[in-house]
Design a protein around this nucleic acid. Structure first.
Ligand SMILES: NC(=O)c1ccc[n+]([C@@H]2O[C@H](COP(=O)([O-])OP(=O)(O)OC[C@H]3O[C@@H](n4cnc5c(N)ncnc54)[C@H](O)[C@@H]3O)[C@@H](O)[C@H]2O)c1
Ligand SMILES: NC(=O)c1ccc[n+]([C@@H]2O[C@H](COP(=O)([O-])OP(=O)(O)OC[C@H]3O[C@@H](n4cnc5c(N)ncnc54)[C@H](O)[C@@H]3O)[C@@H](O)[C@H]2O)c1
Lengths: 226, 226
DNA sequence: GAGCATTTGTTCCTTATTTCACAAATGCTT
DNA sequence: AAGCATTTGTGAAATAAGGAACAAATGCTC
């Protein structure tokens, strides 16, 4: 008797989710600037994201705005935070305390979103036992055991490509349900484990192509103001 | 008198480009394994990307395969490399020699794709002049001047969020045409400058949502084999 | 060298996402 | 409190992306 598809809400499309995190960032900035109301038109002006898109994205999460007025910044921010489940602490573990892994461990941005890095693992004997920021690097061999206590569901994978699949399997074994993967490898995992890949090289390749194709294609558009 | 839209080729869709870099990575692995021919069906089996999708993606770049046989790995790899313009050196500069920036400078993956990090900048006096891997950290104030000589078109932006817009403007001023941005900020730049944003937090937020929504939504699908 | 088993390139259909456009809602002004 | 200027939420239209299906091409077998 409702318009929903299944039992709960219908799933939020990935493109929407990706934008939503952008909105969240933007709203946090607005709060800092003491702005307490914002319209979709203003969002478009400041973020470049189409106003209708913004409004429709929000309908996937619920209703928030007031016609003629706009959106209450604090309220909307809180609501998005809640939907993304970033309103309570979530434990995260990291494997691979190398260059990239070390940078991530020290990154304060995680805390801001209530993501709590609770353990770091590596298999390099000369690293195991050493401190890294406020954590001690642990042996990857103890991963399952350690996470039995911690119960983290999210992991960051920052090991070299050749080791990635094996470590990913270990992570799943240890009860991890979501992996942020930095290794340039396509992980083969059970369907009930979520994976997001981050690839700087991919992004650079896209830029490289765009630069190259522009000189061939672009007949140079009309305007260039901002 | 061809079926093309404009003068050159029609633009490759971004989703295709993103997958293409995955193919490239995959093909390089195959070469390592001495495999010299691959079919789209096999690509699907190993990467999870639909075979028809793979074939269609390639048609955006040209023709490569032989019916009944498949694709020559080395040839396809070379072709993709060429289309992405990663067959010749491209200069890249980086601004922000902090945690993340330092990890990136030391990353050998760039070289593999003929991306040559030629200069690193920072505005922190205690860092300027210091060596970072094989480079010396230079003063951001000299960016325009230095790049007049170098002529890099691609930049990596790894400064704190509050500084990002200002530095991005400087980069454009210095002749940069493509920016890989790590700061959690929406950069406002001329339309003829390409930007790709990398946001770990965004990715983690998506994972967080997926984890959360699953417990509400998922009625648990049928199969789980692999 | 004809038949057969493959596998491509591409057309056509389906699904997803974006954008448009407008009625309904809100609050401000007089 | 009626009119007006905004701005939302949302159906309907437009674009874009994904996937199935198949004719045409290739090489292998006998
Ligand atoms: N550094 C970068 O800027 C960068 C950029 C893009 C992608 N990446 C990718 O991120 C990953 C890590 O990069 P990095 O530069 O930090 O590499 P790194 O070599 O500095 O660090 C890798 C770490 O993983 C550890 N390790 C190796 N095998 C392991 C195992 N089986 N179990 C646990 N730990 C193990 C190593 O001991 C090392 O500490 C790589 O896959 C790389 O391709 C890195
Ligand atoms: N460290 C991470 O794991 C991580 C993860 C995600 C995003 N980020 C983002 O990447 C960026 C860099 O992160 P970080 O951890 O390396 O920070 P950091 O503080 O370690 O490094 C920032 C560097 O930028 C330099 N800098 C500041 N203002 C500058 C300016 N105007 N011109 C030139 N250089 C300037 C600083 O001196 C410092 O060396 C930030 O925007 C951060 O939000 C970092």
């Amino acid at each position: 008797m409702a318009m929903n598809s299944q039992n709960g809400k219908d799933p939020v499309p990935i493109p929407t989710l990706e934008r939503v995190t952008t909105y969240l960032r933007f709203l946090l900035d607005l709060e800092q600037s003491q702005i307490d109301t914002i319209s979709s038109a203003e969002v478009e002006r400041q973020t470049g994201i189409n106003a209708a898109q913004f409004r429709k994205d929000l309908t996937h999460l619920g209703q928030f705005g007031k016609p003629g007025v706009g959106y209450n910044v604090a309220e909307l921010q809180a609501q998005i935070t809640r939907v993304l489940r970033m309103d309570h602490e979530q434990k995260v573990i990291l494997v691979g305390a190398g260059n990239l892994g070390s940078a991530l461990v020290g990154y304060p941005g995680l805390q801001e979103h209530r993501l709590s890095l609770v353990a770091v693992f590596d298999n390099n004997l000369s690293k195991i036992g050493r401190p890294l920021w406020n954590l001690e690097i642990q042996d990857t061999a103890t991963l399952t055991e350690v996470n039995k206590v911690l119960g983290a569901q999210i992991a960051i994978l920052a090991v070299p490509a050749p080791a990635a699949q094996k470590v990913a399997d270990q992570l799943v074994e240890a009860g991890i349900r979501a992996i942020l993967n930095f290794a340039p490898v396509i992980l083969k995992l059970p369907r009930n484990v979520y994976v997001r890949n981050v690839s700087f090289l991919q992004e650079l390749a896209v830029l490289s192509y765009q630069l190259a194709s522009e000189s061939l294609n672009a007949p140079l558009k009309k305007q260039e103001k901002e």
